[in-house]
Nucleic acid binder design. Structure first.
Lengths: 226, 226
DNA sequence: TTTAATATTAACTCAATGTTAACCCACCAT
DNA sequence: ATGGTGGGTTAACATTGAGTTAATATTAAA
């Protein structure tokens, strides 16, 4: 299984380092940011499953950043959790308004934190899993096949991941950057045409009508009607 | 397929009625209970596959009921899902401790709920039974042999374990990591080619067509048609 | 109409896997 | 002990096909 991606945001580097170390050891893929502004940048690239963010930060505070992040549709069901000092009650109300999913109070107790993270991600993973199914098509990660109108189609890795990504949000346009970041990874660099070729192969196998090109923007998966 | 049995537990009858109506329409067999105490009684009779239970209830709350239900061995692999208001985070940790499998936050979005239910039930049914026997092949752990179309084939330990693993979920892809973890153990480290060699020997003995390579992902056992 | 973005095709590259044979070692019989 | 046997591993090399690229054609937006 792909390891869950967590973005940590706090202005105290000590805390960041500590958490990053522990979470990496638990098998998560971790990135960090020092303030809200950075957090938004990193989040748009990294597409984390979970963001743990301090409320009080310089540059841009957590509440504001949360609001910004929620504007990005790709991050719509990213879980956002605030770190807050015990008793900062008002932030809780403001935070939920901004779209936070949960709170963790400082001082942080690792055990509580990990159990909470696990729970949150589990919830998310169940939710994420079901986006891989539309009226005529279903992704089966276990068997690594796509079932289209009852017919099993086996796809090579990259094509499979690409389709899974597009299907995860039907009708949503994915830019090339997002596709690269998600299917290839931030570090790997490949030419621009590579993506077209994979799209083509996919269209060849599942039918042209499922993947639509939005010129100058990206690609999207559309559910076809009979 | 037998229709899955779902037990709904909530003190608000409106919600119960609504959910019962919708889930029945989806083809599930549904029973309801108004509190934890009732839930336990009904569960012991009804033996549901899935229990959806509110956390906050009179008489006996969800957490307590969950703990009680987990004591009944007949209900050991019943899935329990809590309904919880957004942000009740204490209950989350307590709930997981009590043996909950998932959470659904209120307000309930029917579409989310139904797909979640579908996902949970599917996962459970897959995890339920491990296959030791397919149409043309049978594993005999006692005798440590494989019977293929009536012919006994004796295999060395590693090959046997490897085949047993792959066969346990036909068509499921097993990654190299999983195979190593399961056949060799997490601690033992062996070279990458080792696995290929065992696969090859297996293929030599049972026929190439039974084990399929999914490049970049892993291997899977497929049942061959005659 | 113009042009940048995308489609298409085929050739090529390279990492993942297949294959073979040699080697090590535990176990067993002599 | 000695030597044989076979499972398990490894190393070296071969093969394959997924993934990429390059070259060219086509398309849709301005």
């Amino acid at each position: 299984m792909k390891s869950s991606k967590i973005l940590l945001v706090d202005d105290e580097e000590d805390i960041l380092d500590l958490l990053e170390y522990n979470l990496s050891k638990e098998g998560y893929t971790v990135k960090t940011a020092l303030n809200g502004k950075q957090a938004i940048e990193v989040a748009n690239e990294f597409l984390p499953d979970l963001i743990i963010m301090d409320v009080m930060m310089p540059e841009m505070d957590g509440i504001e950043a949360c609001g910004e992040i929620r504007k990005n549709k790709l991050l719509a069901n990213t879980i956002i959790t605030f770190l807050t000092a015990r008793g900062e009650d008002y932030s809780q109300i403001a935070g939920y308004d901004a779209g936070a999913d949960d709170y963790i109070t400082k001082p942080i107790k690792p055990k509580v934190l990990f159990s909470k993270i696990k729970g949150l991600l589990r919830r998310a993973s169940v939710e994420a899993e079901l986006v891989e199914e539309t009226a005529t098509m279903r992704i089966d990660r276990e068997k690594y096949i796509v079932i289209q109108k009852g017919v099993e189609i086996s796809l090579p890795k990259k094509e499979f991941e690409l389709l899974a990504l597009l299907m995860s949000r039907p009708n949503n346009v994915f830019t090339r950057e997002k596709i690269f970041a998600s299917v290839w990874g931030d570090d790997i660099v490949v030419g621009d045409r590579t993506i077209d070729v994979h799209i083509r192969k996919l269209r060849e196998k599942i039918g042209d009508e499922y993947i639509k090109t939005v010129k100058g923007v990206g690609y999207k998966f559309v559910e076809v009607e009979d």
